[in-house]
């Protein structure tokens, strides 16, 4: 079995977002870049499965659409344990274009399972994995919080309102994962970092897939009014304010 994990390169989640002077762009000049947290969990789970597979999972590859600035993030994913990386050489414009580029780059590679994170922490689109599955005409299972392999069968928990469905799937399939899929992302070891330098990172030319959407303007959130403090000995006052002032209860 061959696994592919799609990786997005995003600003560190603690980044304070600064806008450009005309507010038509986000100022990314001093941003620390990381593997999108959900993609990192997907990669972690893929590596756990490979290690436990006794050789039946032959490889965990990663793919990314971005320019050379993303290579440090891809090397980190290789240091965590991915076997090889593909970077489609194009600026990622929107999820539709990214999914289209990935589909074109891998259509002849016969991956059995493709893992994607449920969303990216930058544009919060929740779109790429499902779009990729549709471009590839593969079945997909989304909101997956548990993934096990039993022989040729994948056993997945898909979160639904109030619980989960257990889904049985066979390859090929796109699995879109969320919180719970792996406990903690892995931290690269020194040995992993050394080995990552020698692992293949193939750069392929983009096909020029078109985007359908465009972010044109940004505004910062409205600043919040100061918090009204209530004395710890008088919680009834909080009840009173929620009822009479906020009119929320």
């Amino acid at each position: 079995m061959k696994i592919l994990v799609c990786i997005s390169n995003v600003p560190d989640t603690t980044t304070r977002i600064k806008l450009s002077g005309d507010q038509n762009a986000i100022d990314l000049s001093s941003v620390q870049w990381i593997i999108n947290p959900w993609d990192e969990l997907a990669l972690t789970r893929a590596l756990e499965l490979k290690e436990a597979s006794g050789g039946s999972i032959s490889s965990v590859s990663i793919i990314h659409v971005g320019n050379a600035g993303s290579d440090a993030t891809l090397r980190k994913a290789l240091a965590i344990g991915a076997d090889d990386a593909i970077r489609v050489d194009a600026a990622p414009t929107d999820a539709y274009a990214v999914a289209h580029e990935i589909a074109e780059a891998i259509k002849d590679k016969n991956y059995d399972m493709i893992l994607c994170g449920i969303e990216s922490s930058d544009y919060n689109g929740s779109a790429m994995g499902g779009m990729l599955a549709e471009f590839l005409n593969m079945e997909s299972v989304s909101s997956v919080s548990k993934l096990e392999i039993e022989g040729d069968e994948l056993k997945l928990n898909r979160e639904i309102a109030g619980g989960f469905e257990v889904v049985s799937a066979t390859a090929p399939v796109v699995v879109i994962v969320q919180k719970g899929i792996a406990l903690e992302p892995r931290i690269p070891s020194m040995r992993g970092i050394m080995m990552a330098r020698k692992k293949p990172l193939e750069v392929v030319a983009a096909t020029g897939a078109e985007a359908l959407t465009e972010f044109v303007h940004y505004t910062p959130p409205q600043p919040k009014a100061a918090c009204k403090m209530i004395d710890a000995d008088n919680p009834a006052e909080l009840v009173n304010l929620l009822h009479n002032e906020a009119k929320i209860i």
């Binding site: 539709y96 929740s126 779109a127 790429m128 499902g130 779009m131 599955a133 997909s140 299972v141 359908l212």
Partner: peptide
């Protein structure tokens, strides 16, 4: 989340989530 992105590709319809 599971189906809107797929409909987007099927109809070539840009999506805002």
């Amino acid at each position: 989340k599971a189906i809107a992105p797929r409909v987007s590709v099927k109809l070539k319809a840009g999506m805002v989530f």
